[in-house]
Amino acid sequence: MVRKVKPIWEALGKLDRRWVYLFVSLSILFPLLFPLNLPLTVTKHVKAVYDRIENLPDTSAVLIAFDFDPSSIPECLPMAISLCHHVMKSGKVLIVYTNFPETGPIAERVLEPLAAKFQREYGKHYVNLGFKPGNDVLLMALGSSWTTSFPKDFRGNSTQEMEIFSRFPSYRHLSFMVDVAHGATVDFYITIGLAQFGVPLAAGVTAVSIPQYEAFVQTGQLVGLLGGLKGAAEYEKLVGTKGKATRGMDAQSVAHLVIIFFIFLGNVSVVRNIILKNISAMRIKK
């Protein structure tokens, strides 16, 4: 039996998926092991968030909502770390809470070392309220008081006696908030936090959500936008740290090139057919 050999342009479009997996894996592994240190430019959306926090008076309170779960830690956690770093370093009061059950302990692991580094006192300069369900309903409730919905913080301390909540008793008393989110929670802060309580906001979102929230930057509803690992890396650059986001940027670059290469490879036979069709159409015309 004679085995029929596929023409090369057809074979290029029908490689086994595991070849794609292998090349994508290698495109990530090599830059992680041998960094290229590609230069990173800070975009205006990210700079706008940084500038807003930087220019707030020292007496103001900023909320960083850790609205993500382990599935989006790689993109969101570096953003949350850099934002908390910035708020604490610049001497503003920091309030943290989350709409996700998994993220209370993650926030705790972020805040503790930063507080030690910048000598911030718990309950006076920063607080981790932990998780509470409710999303938009919770936010409505926070508009009247933090302590009613959060009688205790993540550590189990009573919030009634905390200095932070006598100075900033409700959501309305915030000067700025950033929602580091992997889902639609940003919508609640736009529609309630900003529209009803007048608290300006920015968002740090996963790359998937970038197109959706561009429209809110254009209307001015979002002060700025941190998008995906690149947004996180840009913020790391602004605060002067080199975290996991910066480390991942080289791998991200090379992996994108590999995927684009595969997209072109998959289209070789399609483009060939289009060209052949046009040539034959021209011949018929002649």
Partner: peptide
């Protein structure tokens, strides 16, 4: 393709 290439540092290079 343009978003993929423009959103990473290598695109700028």
């Amino acid at each position: 393709v343009l978003v993929m290439i423009g959103k990473v540092p290598i695109g700028e290079i």
